[in-house]
């Protein structure tokens, strides 16, 4: 059986040969793979690759989530960022907001293929839940002008057990090892996720009409009573799912409401 130490090591040769990324950069320890990727955007020369660069962290010391949230990262988490050339994918600017859901769907499929007997769903707009607890998060950022490459940052709890995490975190988050009771090769999960991203970004670029149906099918909030905060305004309603343009739809006291931004603070 593979030891946890070996499982957490990356096989860079396999990643390079089994995924469409043009180059792989590995950092043993880094503050945030997204920060590194954004800094690298200026130096990317290849214009023909959909994924010009992949940045992997052995340990991420300050992975970023939404706003000021910091990704809780113990050893064994898979944290990486992909630089994406939107022109190769035919991703016009008006489709960029759909990247969080699209990347989320790819992560969801990769985890589901790894743990087919468990429920893996999307929590609008950029989290993935495993058996109702957060297992992965996505942070998409736009690179600097004038080129405006995109950076998709992904964190997946793989071999980092939450058994040792603070109690309040244990009820909200989980990992593959906690659910499956065994370690997984980070390299396998990474390759699977990138190749799923390759498929799903292709669908988004082609305007695949079935893509929204997949978000809808995998929506963790549908049918739940949801509270969403937009700025200082809180709205509560029954979630009807995700619309074709990515909006979260709530049935509120005043009727149907659509949200393109906001924080889902509570759902049950």
């Amino acid at each position: 059986m593979t030891s946890a130490h070996d499982a957490n090591r990356f096989d860079l040769g396999r990643i390079q040969s089994e995924t469409p990324v043009a180059e792989v950069r590995y950092f043993d320890r880094i503050d945030s793979t997204n920060n590194a990727a954004l800094a690298m955007c200026q130096d990317i020369r290849s214009a023909n690759s959909g994924f010009p660069s992949l940045i992997i962290a052995g340990t991420q010391t300050r992975g970023r989530g939404r706003g000021q949230n910091v990704w809780w990262s113990a050893g064994g988490a898979l944290t990486f960022s992909l630089i994406v050339e939107p022109r190769v994918w035919n991703l016009a600017e008006n489709r960029w907001p759909l990247l969080s859901l699209t990347a989320g769907l790819a992560v969801r499929h990769a985890i589901s293929r790894t743990l087919p007997d468990h429920e893996v769903k999307l929590k609008w707009p950029n989290d993935v839940l495993l058996n109702g607890r957060k297992v992965a998060g996505i942070l998409v950022e736009v690179g600097p002008l004038p080129r405006r490459l995109l950076v998709i940052g992904i964190g997946i709890n793989v071999n980092n057990s939450f058994n040792a995490a603070p109690r309040e975190l244990r009820t909200l988050a989980t990992s593959l090892i906690d659910v499956a009771g065994m370690t997984h090769e980070l390299t396998d999960i990474l390759i699977r996720t990138i190749n799923e991203l390759d498929i799903q970004l292709g669908r988004l670029g082609r305007g695949d009409a079935d893509l929204p149906a997949d978000w809808q099918r995998c929506c963790a909030l549908k049918g739940n009573s949801v509270t969403i905060e937009v700025g200082t305004t809180r709205t509560k309603g029954l979630c009807q799912g995700i619309d074709g343009d990515g909006a979260l739809i709530l049935l509120t006291e005043k009727g149907l409401a659509r949200f393109y931004a906001g924080v889902v603070s509570h759902f049950e």
Binding site: E93, P97, L99, S100, L101, P125, V140, V142, L145, G246
Partner: peptide
């Protein structure tokens, strides 16, 4: 190329020129 605002949608903060 002057950035005039940011539009946030689905957690993506897009600088608008």
């Amino acid at each position: 190329n002057t950035v005039v605002c940011i539009i946030e949608a689905m957690k993506i903060f897009n600088e608008i020129t």
